[in-house]
Design a protein around this nucleic acid. Structure first.
Length: 584
RNA sequence: GGGCUCGUAGUGAAGAGGCCUAUCACGCCUCCCUGUCACGGAGGAGAUCGCCGGUUCGAAUCCGGUCGGGCCCGCCA
């Protein structure tokens, strides 16, 4: 019978058998202490010379040896207790020791603060996972998923698994292709999301579906975006033609995860609905972090007739001038401001104009170009006071919003306005159905071609396609997009029309989405749903800022698994069987 | 595809033209130690400073290239 480490405290004066890893050893010559670790904690083993065989073996023990010991649990004498560990009141006096396996010296340190860099941690992930923090992460992740499943089960959602060998989709991210052996020259694709399958489930009479679904996209990763594969909480509800019904159904789960699961403070009990347009104008982002203010202030009207050429010309040319007031920013050094200017340039700004409010005065290279009443108006509109800096964006509206939105986030980070104990949720709604693709110089889908345009068919006939709004919604958590959803289009005619506006003919649409088009002919119920990126959501709930920290075996930033050495070459016979030839 | 940035014993860091025959901590090896829990003590091994080239009397240090990691842009319906 094996006793877990955490159970030893309840076994005083009893003989127990404990199995685990050697966490550390303290060899005093005539007395040896070994800390044994399992997934429940650490306990001290004592080896006395009287237990001759065990003592001699214990002298050979090294860190991370796997051992099995049998001994008597003893309460420690006063003064020998260790209040720093859960089992510090007791120790196991060992009578018998079995070395189940030895260990070489570890290539990375798994104890203490000095952590190996991520590259090595991923190469030796099985060792990295032994660290209590990673053990805790895996447990919490499982707990999070358990709460999600439990909530959805009690709300009549049915979990259905959908195919992993799916079809290439023409829109969206790059596919992972799987060559077909049986059908030479043809390919499956790993699903970027179960989108079409879940809609077909709605047609198939499933009232409410969910799945913790593996999704695959071959796009370059980021700190908040895994390479290759990730998991979605995917869900869909039939007989729903109002996105609000989806939002209000799923909201309680997310709130519960924030407060009960993560133990964090929810900023707004009533989760705000913000239109895409408002989000862009007020926060310069479609995923605004609402834990802090620093909203963008429109100054185009106020400065329309300014003599400051940069502003005046921008406004005359159809652009806009906006500003953000950064509280306490006058403490920034010149070189710090230069760094923020670089950030602004990355986002497309030409430079970064600003006014510093200090000791009742306004200091700035541009102040002399602005009239006193203009300065006064700026101060009033931005609510700037002593110690603040007002930063300006003057350019095309899109650029200004993007630049100031990015700066807003960077300043918040710099001034520690992102409270890690607070979670701010928001729904961003009313996304534009179409967007103008500057590079390709053509109209393109804004978000998701399967969503319903608000206002239905009539809305699609609008003169300016860019004004068409999709019944589509994202959930934002502390500046991260964690969910995307929509009321779906379940009408073949609307489908044709939606794609037709982009120049795709009926044949193309049928060729690509034939299954959906066909299915929709046979009594498709209206339906709506959404999908949460649960790795990302979990990351923010547990306060990590790198998504690879919350996944057991992530690929690195180059899409490589250095532990398993994938991707890798394959045998020629395998390629031949698949009718594939590698060209390099 | 592009920008920024980092590569120094097994691990984490210091060194920023000569003080380097490269420093420190942890780890590793040998020996000593019966109450430690970041045990302690004595000793030891381990690094051609990612790689290639250049500048220089002299390069871990400066320059160019290259490879690898990270962050960002593009991309991610």
């Amino acid at each position: 019978m094996r006793t877990l480490v955490k159970e030893t405290t309840e076994q005083v004066d009893q003989t127990v058998t404990v199995k685990g890893w050697v966490n550390s050893r303290r060899d005093h010559g005539g007395l040896i202490f070994i800390d044994v670790r399992d997934h429940t904690g650490v306990a001290q083993l004592v080896f006395h010379p009287e237990a001759d065989e065990a003592f001699k073996l214990a002298e050979q023990l090294r860190d991370e040896f796997v051992i099995k010991v049998t001994g008597e649990v003893k309460e420690r004498d006063e003064g020998l207790k260790n209040p720093n560990i859960a089992t510090g009141e007791i120790e196991v006096v060992v009578q018998e020791l079995v070395v189940l396996n030895r260990s070489e010296a570890l290539p990375i340190q798994i104890q203490g603060e000095a952590m190996a860099n991520e590259d090595l941690r991923l190469r030796y992930r099985y060792l990295d996972l032994r660290r209590p923090k990673m053990q805790d992460m895996l447990k919490r992740r499982a707990g999070c998923f358990r709460e999600i499943r439990s909530f959805l089960e009690t709300h009549d959602f049915i979990e259905v698994t959908t195919p992993i060998l799916a079809n290439s989709s023409p829109e969206g991210a790059r596919d992972f292709l799987i060559p077909s052996r049986i059908h030479p020259g043809k390919f499956y694709a790993l699903p970027q999301a179960p989108q079409q399958f879940k809609q077909l489930l709605m047609v198939g009479g499933v009232p409410r579906y969910y799945q913790l679904a593996a999704c695959f996209r071959d796009e370059d990763p980021r700190a908040d975006r895994l390479y290759g594969e990730f998991y979605q909480l995917d869900l869909e509800m039939s007989f729903v033609d109002d996105g609000e019904e989806v939002r209000s159904t799923i909201e309680p789960l997310i709130k519960q995860l924030v407060t009960d699961f993560a133990g964090k403070k929810l900023l707004n009990e009533d989760i705000p609905r913000i239109s895409y347009k408002d989000a862009m104008e007020r926060f310069g982002s479609d995923k605004p972090d609402l834990r802090f203010g620093m909203e963008l202030v429109e100054l185009s009207d106020e400065l329309a007739n300014t003599e400051f050429g940069v502003f005046a010309n921008t406004i005359k040319g159809g652009g806009c001038v906006k500003a953000i007031c950064v509280k306490g920013a006058s403490s920034l050094s010149r070189s710090q401001i230069d760094q923020f200017t670089e950030v602004a340039k990355v986002e497309g700004a030409g430079g970064l104009a600003y006014l510093t409010f200090e000791a009742g005065e306004i200091k700035s290279p541009i102040a002399k170009f602005l009239k006193p009443e203009e300065l006064k108006t700026i101060q009033e509109k931005t609510a700037a006071s002593d110690g603040d800096i007002v930063f300006f964006g003057a350019d095309k509206r899109l650029v200004v919003n993007k630049v100031l939105g990015r700066l807003r986030s960077e300043f918040a980070k710099h001034f520690n306005l992102k409270d890690p104990n607070v979670i701010a949720l928001a729904w961003i709604v009313d996304f534009p159905f179409y967007e103008w693709d500057d590079k390709a110089n053509k109209l393109d889908f804004g978000h998701n071609p399967f969503s319903m345009p608000k206002g239905g068919v009539e809305a699609l006939e609008a003169e300016d396609k860019l004004n068409i709004v999709a019944d589509q919604y994202d959930m934002v958590m502390n500046g991260y997009e964690i969910c995307s959803g929509a009321v779906r289009n379940h009408n073949p005619d609307v489908m044709y029309q939606v794609f037709g506006a982009l120049g795709y003919d009926r044949e193309y649409v049928y060729a690509k989405f034939g299954a959906m088009i066909n299915a929709f002919k046979y009594g498709a119920p209206p339906h709506a749903g959404c999908a949460f990126g649960i790795d990302r959501m979990f990351m923010e709930l547990v306060g990590e800022d790198n998504i690879r920290e919350v996944v057991a075996f992530p690929k690195n930033g180059s899409g490589v698994d250095t532990m398993m050495n994938s991707p890798s070459n394959v045998e020629d016979v395998q390629l031949k069987e698949l009718n594939i030839k590698a060209t390099n």
